[in-house]
Amino acid sequence: MHADVPLLEVQNLCISFRSHGRNVPIVENVSFSVNMQEILAIVGESGSGKSVTATAIMGLIDTRDVKITGSAKFRGQELIGLPQKAFRQLRGRHIAMVFQDPMTAFTPVYTIGWQIDEQIRAHERVSKSEARARTVQMLGNMGVPDPERTANRYPHQLSGGLRQRAMIAMALSCNPALLIADEPTTALDVTVQAQILDLIRNLRHDYGSSVLLITHDMGVVAETCDQVMVMYSGRVAEFGPGDAIFAQPAHPYTAALLDSIPPLTGPRPTRLPSIAGSPPSPSERPAGCAFAPRCNYSHKSCETVPPLVTYGQQSVACVLPVEGRALPSRAVTKDLA
């Protein structure tokens, strides 16, 4: 395996649903790559297409009304159009997924341990007791107290935090190269969220896994990720290293999104800077830049879809940098005493 070949390379991914006889594009021309042991965050609001992108990469979209085009190469293997049978060899073993709500993501009628054993035994020829030993070890590694007894408990008997740890243990049980985490902490309390983020941050060292983290929370992104892809209304708004994006967002949407988060320190603004209106639904997406109707900088040249251009370390789908009117940088660094 060449070190410079990305683990996952997605190019021009388009996903559209057929509804009432016409194609509604959900995701348009999304390209990104995840390198070995890297954490990439896809961040966006509801309806931005971030979850659909992940589900498509996992091959979990099975409605026939969906059309997927473009390319997603995992270790050089094309995933788009891969037959389900071949996909099964990858899923769970090489690419694993963690979902938002750990309560509903486990089958309620089997114990946690049974469900982790099941995944191990689906991919490796091991005995029941060997699988259980690995399960118990994984649960322990994920910080589950008393893993042997916890393995014999049912999902509803555990707290949200423990369930999500068990979920991650299950996802990692076959040592996958890529972990896709879809809003893994959204259903959790902040103190538990901090624990789980800590766990995810350490995965690359402890397991050598890359992580594709899907979230709506810019704070979560800042805490965990190397690379960030901001999506708005099914398109990439901005892509680049987290530090660069937080220091100087190049897309007005990223900047406005960061500004609209109420600060926890420093002076309190009397009013929060907010973005007027709400994101467009896929069927009502504007012809040009999707953010233009809500953007303070929108002008004539926003009436066509702006191409991704390189600006500093980022690539951004906005005409401002090209026109020499880049956004100012933010005061964002924070020293923790």
Partner: peptide, 22 residues
């Protein structure tokens, strides 16, 4: 509780109080 809130800033030192357990 304050320390656990993830903030959209680049942190220099990760000196947070992580609570254990639920």
């Amino acid at each position: 509780l304050i320390s656990a809130v993830p903030e959209p800033v680049i942190r220099h030192a990760a000196s947070r109080t992580l609570l254990h357990g639920d």
